[in-house]
Amino acid sequence: MVLKPGHIISQCKESHDFEGFFIVVHEDKLNEILPSLHFVAPYTLHYNSNPIIEMTAEELESQYLIYEMLQKQIRLEGRPFNKLTLGASCELLFYNTLSIYASRSEDRSHHSRREELLANFIDLIETHFKSERAVNFYADKLFVTPKHLSAVLKEISGKTAGEWIDHRVILEAKLMLRSTGMNIQEISLALNFSNQSFFGKYFKHLTGMSPRDYRNKLSEN
């Protein structure tokens, strides 16, 4: 079962032999460890309409092994590199879950034109987000109007085209601040901002903190 913010499960019945485990992840933390939308977005719609799927015994075993590893790492809090190990373990669990869901939705022939529009839009973002942040650019590539593109994406994903673009740029910026030795000026140039000041204002507007504050906060952890 994969539940996202806003999901409501009703008409549940208690079973005397129920057994399970659950993991709760804050969306911001998930974004930190999963910078790529390319693999995730096409299955977001599948999550929404199919939050509960049946798993094979082998799939369940693989999930439980990762879960047990996470539990052990949590108990080792304070050890060097433990936060990085936890992040890698969460990433492993996420992609293993994604793999299970993807295997249930491999046939893309039944996807609607709107779903295909989202998937194609995400593919374009992955290719061009470092150099193109205008909705018009992506709409032209997809042969639709900017208004239509944003309306469709908002309806089926909860984000407009502009929000998706900003989301991807910020994920990459966070990744570069977290995982590279590049200074903020170099990062702003790599992401095609006209100058460091504009990048800083853009980053702060969308995250609530400056790039430097974000990097300093990471070092404190």
Rank of each mutant, 00 (worst) to 15 (best):
N136Q: 15
A41E: 12
K13P: 08
A88T: 05
R113F: 11
F129G: 04
S188C: 09
F198C: 08
P35Y: 01
L171N: 10
N136A: 15
I184M: 02
D123R: 14
K29P: 06
T207L: 13
N136K: 15
I156K: 06
E27R: 14
F137L: 09
L153G: 01
A88M: 12
I156G: 04
P51E: 00
L118C: 10
T160P: 01
C90W: 10
N183L: 01
D28W: 07
S49V: 14
L76F: 08
S49D: 11
P42S: 05
I122V: 15
K159P: 06
L206W: 04
R133M: 09
S150W: 02
N136L: 15
F94R: 03
I187M: 08
H148G: 02
S112D: 11
N96T: 09
D107P: 15
K147R: 05
G158M: 10
G20L: 00
L191Y: 06
W164F: 13
E186A: 14
Y101A: 02
N221W: 05
G87K: 00
F39Y: 08
E132W: 02
K83D: 13
T180M: 05
I187Q: 04
A88Y: 08
G158K: 07
A151F: 01
L98K: 07
N183S: 06
T97R: 10
F22Y: 15
N31F: 10
T44W: 12
N192T: 10
S194Y: 04
S112H: 08
N120W: 06
T85M: 14
Y43E: 04
G87R: 00
E77L: 14
T207I: 09
A173P: 11
M176G: 01
R178L: 03
L65N: 05
A57C: 03
L60R: 02
N31H: 09
K141M: 14
N50A: 12
D123G: 12
R75G: 11
E172F: 05
G78M: 03
K4Q: 09
T180R: 07
W164P: 00
K174V: 00
T145N: 03
Y101E: 05
Y214P: 15
D166C: 02
G6C: 08
H128W: 14
S105M: 13
A151K: 07
I9L: 14
L153I: 01
N82V: 15
P80S: 07
S15G: 13
E106M: 15
F22C: 11
N48F: 11
V152S: 06
Q185L: 03
F81E: 12
Y95I: 03
N216V: 08
G78S: 06
F143G: 14
R79C: 09
S179G: 00
P35C: 05
L142E: 02
L60H: 03
V40Y: 13
R104W: 11
A102Y: 08
L84M: 13
E59D: 08
P42L: 06
H205N: 08
F121H: 02
N221D: 07
I125K: 03
P211F: 00
I187C: 09
G162C: 04
L37K: 03
H38M: 12
Y67N: 00
R133T: 09
E172W: 06
K83G: 04
F193H: 03
T85H: 11
Q73Y: 02
S109D: 12
P80F: 01
N50D: 12
S219L: 14
E14V: 10
R75T: 03
A102E: 15
G208I: 01
F21C: 04
V24M: 11
E58S: 11
H110E: 11
V40C: 03
